[in-house]
Design a protein around this nucleic acid. Structure first.
Lengths: 415, 415
DNA sequence: GATGATTGTTGTGCCCGGCAACATATCCCT
DNA sequence: AGGGATATGTTGCCGGGCACAACAATCATC
């Protein structure tokens, strides 16, 4: 139950829509914006002027004119001067990026990750270093307007398996908490640091700038040490209770399967995770993405044991995909992280399983794709998440929460 | 990418929010509305005046005053004069209701359903009769402002199993199509007839007026001849591609299970459906809800074979619930239709399975509940769906679609 | 260089909701 | 019974948002 925006909120919303448009689609002429957003020329002019004054966009006279008539000013996001910092803690390395408005990666650095049993501070320290370096290299006057963190579950020392998110919330994940604290103290301004799971952010990135552009219903599957899933439903990230998405990796696909670190058994993760592939191929555990790549490589070269392992794991991959397709009826399933290569190596099994277990109407229109952004998807998703605050309210650095009542009011503006 | 509402849309939206508020929460004083919606007294006054003029609400001086100060006028939905027709095609019977604004069931009738192999027209005919009777009994001047239909998959003649939704869309379901045509011709006005799946509508009803009020993330499971699921995510019904929800009933829970009518095997539906329970209990197939009740009854009385069957089926029920909980992280799971009794009879198995296969953080906060609206949930959901059009735009009978651009405009009103 | 086409700019007006002052209705206390 | 306190409806006015139209600016074409 809530009413709509006040007139001031309309203004803010429209500013946000305009800024988001140039952020996502790149530089756009005012004439196109007028057509795309359905606002009057005069309104578009007022909005862009406001954004330009705020230093968020520039307006330029276009080079190539071509058509008759007065050339329309091109609105371009201030990619160099307005940026966010994005962080991702991977299994074997940590990455950080400075990303400009418009999605331009201005700087990107990575460092090896301290081993699994290292205290959180030790994992976080190099990231803070990277952040400082990037911040210091930013041009004078550039504004840091947000920070995003892709949270990866901790890794169990013993066997490299992923610890399930027993803590329940991304915000209370110890690693990301330590990172947040360090960043807040050393690099960040006062604004909040946005956190979300790796797979959720990769899904967001693929939805915004990757293969899933324009797809309202997407399931993104991320292979890592474990299996994560990010779901976009009706164009929005699907978050369960408390804003923490589900865990498709712990969907039980094989009731007779091996025990999982979560206490259950036969979880999807135990059947298609790194551990499962390596074990099936008779290889030692560990090695991360390289270990998986080695098995896939061996299979491609004709190694029978590896081929059998890939087929088996691919079969379970397809099985889980079929289940998710039946449950969600998505337009696209995207394979990212280590699942990208695994899918490519076992596409036949996956399709076959989907045909066997997926509902006909659903499997016929669902498209299976691999990540377009590759390993940087979570990082780029973290950047997109960090931009959200600005895009929701370009002129006000305060966090905008939706009015709980839902009514639209006029002049109920920020004091 | 779209901007927000025009000023006129603000007005419409606020009218809708106000009307929805009294529709869902019942008669409310203007003072409370002022507080709840966050609008000014004068604005609330103007809005209620407009709705009263349109014949959608009445304003009354309250009886019991109690507090000091001028008593606030009570805004009451015009339950008797503004109504929708709702239809539900069940497995063994068809039901129809006339539901007034505010959710008041003004009239409710049912008729036996023609057997499974009957042509669609034959199934639909009694419903149209009921609709005519109800319409004719409505008071003079009462306005029929919408029609909703709960679509149930067709039933296979041979063994009573549900035909999967191979057609892909509710709108193209043959039965509901026939019903829609008949209603449109004989009873309905010009406005569109809203259709959605039984489980989706029951979920909507439970979310609006049942056990799941206030729960933003709900999974509703409906037992029938098959198993359907309706999912509310972030307060909105989850619809997959093309507006057709997923089919949790065809999630494969038992890769080694029996073949399902959908072509797959070991679908949840085959493990916990009517067919499965009756077979496990060594009873003849058929009988619908009564057959299930008989088994549950026998189990309650100590019949060992029935108890074993209930335990087994309850185990699979819990298994599927655990999977869905892991995938969605909902706040509540609601059991409706025949699953209501089944869950009550096997709650121990369900909880035990959930504890074994559900992630700790999720299973700890998820609440398992039975339907509060009982067998009428789909019917009431259909009514709610039918009201949507009015609530989205109380003064205009045109269908309001969201502007594709997303910008907010002023005076871009309906022509 | 004139014309047509397209777009930016400016001033005006409509509409919406907030706001404040006033009117109204009830309760409570003496 | 009457007056003050309290709460709410009502009315007139105002600010802000966007549409609209007229005008100015710029470009292609002939």
């Amino acid at each position: 139950m809530r009413a709509g925006p006040s007139q001031e909120e309309i203004r803010r919303h429209n500013l946000g829509v305009l800024l988001r448009s140039v952020h996502v689609h790149g530089a756009t002429s005012r004439a196109e914006l007028t057509a795309n957003l359905g606002l009057n020329r005069s309104t578009i002019g007022a909005l862009t002027a406001e954004l330009a004054t705020a230093g968020l966009v520039t307006e330029e006279i276009p080079r190539d004119r071509g058509r008759a008539g007065r050339p329309s000013l091109v609105v371009r996001p201030e990619s160099e001067m307005v940026y966010v910092l994005a962080f991702a803690i991977g299994v074997d390395r940590v990455t950080a990026a400075r990303v400009g408005l418009g999605g331009l990666v201005l700087d990107r650095r990575e460092a090896p990750r301290a081993p699994g049993q290292a205290p959180a501070e030790e994992v976080v320290a190099p990231l803070v270093d990277l952040a400082r370096q990037m911040r210091d290299l930013a041009p004078a006057g550039a504004r840091h307007i947000g920070t995003g963190v892709a949270v990866t579950p901790m890794i169990r020392e013993r066997d490299g398996q992923v610890r399930p998110r027993a803590y329940g919330s991304w915000a209370s994940d110890p690693l990301s908490e330590a990172l947040t604290e360090a960043i807040r103290a050393d690099v960040n301004g006062d604004f909040p640091i946005a956190r979300l799971g790796t797979a959720d952010l990769a899904a967001l990135a693929e939805h915004t700038r990757g293969v899933a552009i324009g797809c309202a219903n997407v399931i993104y599957l991320h292979g890592d040490a474990g299996i994560g899933g990010g779901i976009i439903a009706a164009g929005r990230p699907l978050t369960g209770h408390g804003g923490n998405g589900g865990e498709v990796g712990h969907m039980v696909v094989n009731p007779a399967g091996k025990p999982c670190c979560c206490g259950s058994r036969g979880c999807w993760e135990t059947e298609i995770g790194e551990h499962a592939l390596l074990t099936a191929a008779g290889r030692p555990i560990g090695g991360g993405a390289a270990g998986i790549a080695a098995v896939l490589d061996a299979a491609a070269r004709g190694d029978a044991e590896a081929q059998t392992a890939v087929r088996k794991v691919g079969d379970w991959l397809g099985f889980g995909v079929a289940n998710l397709v039946n449950i969600f009826n998505p337009e696209m399933v995207v394979f990212g992280g280590t699942l990208r290569e695994l899918y490519l190596a076992s596409a036949a099994q996956v399709r076959s399983r989907l045909n066997r277990n997926g509902l006909q109407a659903y499997r016929e229109h669902v498209r299976l794709r691999t990540s377009a952004l590759g390993d940087d998807a979570p990082l780029l998703g973290a950047a997109e998440l960090a931009f959200e605050r600005l895009l929701a309210d370009p002129l006000n650095d305060q966090v905008t929460e939706l009015d709980s009542t839902g009514t639209m009011t006029a002049q109920s503006g920020v004091t």
